[in-house]
Amino acid sequence: MKRISVELIPRDETDLRAQLAIAKAQAGRADVINIPDLLRFPMRSWEGAAIAKETFPTVMPHIRAMDIDLNVELPMKAYLREHNIREVLVIQGDPPQDMRQRVYPTTTVDVLRKFHEEMPEVKTYAGIDQYRGSMSKECYRIERKLQAGAAGFFTQPFFDIRYVGMYADMMEKFGVKDVYWGVSPVLSDRSQGYWERKNKVVFPKAFEPTLAWSIAFAKEVMQFADAHDASLYVMPIKTDLEQYLAGVFAG
């Protein structure tokens, strides 16, 4: 396997440090900490990444394309350089709940190019959303992001190993060698319903909204990534972080 990335939510510094301690204890094999940029919390992703860098050697803040004004320099440029943060994940981002927060019609492709021009030393990754539409349309988006300089991709969580295989075949066709296959726990009927309504996920017949099933599937994807020289992206959403990571990385 290339690398293992664990996503941690930066609610505040105290909480993030507590999560980092758990991740270090339970997921010591992890190579990268991913930090989302969630506007409902005061800490920006690059600030959280700088804190995470004290514990893990590699960190990757998420950069929201819709926050970037293409007419000015990247606002986090100086901070990234000051803290020697050399990798970022560029995503489109969701509109802010507080509409006083200004957003722009900027796309991920725009921001990938902007990083390439302004910060060529930074390795940029892009996202794959295997649920937002047809595979052919997602293929087109992947090609555009590759043309804009994406070095690799992080997927949304998978729940069916057969679907992972389909996307792996597609990425092989494009010659993409750096893919982080996503997994995340779904632990209730309500959460399953959310994924079905919001993200149009079709769960396999054998799926169960339990911690045991989620851990077993994460291990299955880990084995797939290991066999295909790919990477794993662990997103411990709405779960007991210590219990989930301990189960995924046991043994």
Rank of each mutant, 00 (worst) to 15 (best):
M135K: 13
F159H: 12
A250Y: 10
T210V: 04
I68E: 03
Y104F: 15
D178T: 01
Y233H: 15
D189K: 15
I237R: 02
V179N: 05
I128K: 04
E208W: 04
I4S: 02
D189E: 15
P105D: 07
K205I: 10
G175Q: 10
K177G: 12
G182M: 06
R100N: 12
T106S: 06
Q92S: 14
M43A: 14
M135L: 14
F41Q: 11
E47S: 13
A30E: 00
K173V: 09
E242H: 12
F41G: 14
T55A: 14
D160I: 04
V6S: 01
E143K: 14
T108K: 05
P36K: 06
N199V: 13
P209K: 01
Q130F: 11
E118Y: 08
L211Q: 10
I33H: 03
A25E: 13
P105I: 00
T155Y: 01
E172H: 14
E143P: 02
Y244R: 05
I35C: 11
Q156E: 13
F249T: 09
T124L: 01
M170D: 00
D15H: 14
Q192M: 15
A216R: 15
Q92H: 15
M66H: 09
E118F: 07
G149V: 02
N84K: 15
I85C: 09
K2A: 14
Y163H: 14
P57R: 12
D98K: 07
A212Y: 10
A52T: 11
A49L: 10
R86L: 13
M60V: 03
S214D: 00
V122T: 12
D31P: 00
I51T: 04
S45M: 13
F249R: 04
Q223W: 00
A230K: 12
A216L: 13
M60T: 06
E208S: 11
W213L: 03
M222V: 00
E208G: 06
K198M: 14
K53A: 10
V221S: 03
V202S: 08
A23Q: 07
Y125M: 08
I128W: 04
L70Q: 09
A23S: 06
E82H: 15
I142Q: 01
M222T: 05
A230T: 09
G93Q: 02
A50G: 03
G193P: 08
M135W: 06
H228G: 08
I215A: 04
L146N: 08
Y140K: 11
G48I: 03
S5K: 05
F159Y: 12
R141T: 12
F154P: 11
D15G: 06
A126I: 02
M171F: 15
Q147G: 13
E87L: 09
Y125L: 09
W213Q: 03
V186N: 01
A230C: 12
F159V: 01
Q97S: 13
F115C: 04
D69V: 07
S45V: 07
P204D: 01
G182P: 07
N199R: 09
V109M: 03
